[in-house]
Design a protein around this nucleic acid. Sequence first.
DNA 1: CGCCTATTTGATCTGATTCAAACAATGTGG
DNA 2: CCACATTGTTTGAATCAGATCAAATAGGCG
Lengths: 251, 251
Amino acid sequence: MNELTEFHPVHNVMLRKLRSISPLSEDEKQCLLTLPLAVKSVGADRDIVREGSRPTECCLVVEGFACRYKVTPDGRRQIFSFHLAGDIPDLQSLHLKVMDHSLMTLTPSQLAFIPHESLANLMHRCPRVADVFWRDTLIDAAVFREWMMGIGRRSAETRIAHLFCEVLVRMSVVGLANGRACELPVTQAEIGDALGLSTVHVNRSLKELRAKQLISLKGGFLTVLNWDELKKAGEFDPTYLHLDGAAKAAA
Amino acid sequence: MNELTEFHPVHNVMLRKLRSISPLSEDEKQCLLTLPLAVKSVGADRDIVREGSRPTECCLVVEGFACRYKVTPDGRRQIFSFHLAGDIPDLQSLHLKVMDHSLMTLTPSQLAFIPHESLANLMHRCPRVADVFWRDTLIDAAVFREWMMGIGRRSAETRIAHLFCEVLVRMSVVGLANGRACELPVTQAEIGDALGLSTVHVNRSLKELRAKQLISLKGGFLTVLNWDELKKAGEFDPTYLHLDGAAKAAA
DNA sequence: CGCCTATTTGATCTGATTCAAACAATGTGG
DNA sequence: CCACATTGTTTGAATCAGATCAAATAGGCG
């Protein structure tokens, strides 16, 4: 993975992520390096793109955590996805002009903005890169399906265990995990909003998982104490993440 | 819409759908007409593509209803989406080689199979068509998000009302609705599996919706008796369907 | 007609919510 | 460096939306 360090570190983060889902040729890497990235630091809990708006750029998470969400008329929030360094959560805005949901930071973050125009040019020049981005949005959809499965048909404990498995794997494949541990700077309320649960019930289910010695979660840091059992408890099968050969070992 | 009738009727179904989500130039239409479609008749409740398989073709629904689903280890099913004439439910298999879920018919259907290779060639020749297909998969994902929202945060009655709104609008924009009525040949058990509910509870919620004079549903046929109230009851806002200008009027 | 599948209804149970309050951790300004 | 405010976590008790179990009814169709 060392050859990447010669590139600009911000582009690096993106390449690392893309490589985890699809092999990139030298040409394609060079193509991606031409993308102009306007980096910005943003505090925690800030809306980045809001439902109803018409973005003209996409947002790359360089550092920190973000999520996509929507709120019902009576104020109940559903979080659709968590995003970590390397993700471009609103890539879809390239083809879906009006945002049907919002994007916000969960922690202080560094974000890089990429004009739609630059992305369109790039993909015109390198159709293979377009395919990789398309693939990325398709994996995004696969993750939605998996979450739907959880919310619709799995118990609270199973959902939470599944989420932890997913986060650890996704962190691993971009080199942000430390063995079986990684950052997970989200509150129990946020986990609840992501999994369709109340904060109280998240807390109690978490207690269960801790009692079973499967995980430890404190100070925004997740440690998996028993990977095999956690996978079992979460009915976790990483197929839906569609990791490419190189990254697959992690799961 | 009459100029379409000069084309082969099977391609027609596809064009009608694609036009509902994005305007197509004459060139693009011509491009799409070159796609080889192998039409096949299939009975109800047949698996078309199975989780774990590696398809080499995509499936266009020409007539009938289909759904995508996955089953938990203990046999609970989650349906991710319903598909009607014009949809290509497994378009993603072009870029995600292993199926992470299954696709099946709900009614006797006509399906047209398109080799991945032909699709790849087509999109190489006409990048604009590729964008339309990409857009289609992105709308697919937007629908997943909306369902997640429902399953995670809305009541049973609201979810069901929302589903009815969605189906009617989607049927309308491809010309398969009859005013405020359309086919919806799914059982209550299937509705339950789609919305994360038990059959019994679907039945009771349906009773409520009927009592409120919002809908009628019998013999696989849905009639909306009070569109405005149903929309309200379902918290339905069609933005997430990303219909293009021409189709928008229907919602 | 008789079989099979879908719908409907009733009774009971439970996973998860809600409400409420205590407690811990973290940060902030004086 | 402490007092206080703020935000997140934990626990308890009451309640409820929806699940489960069971059985009756109603359609569709060979």
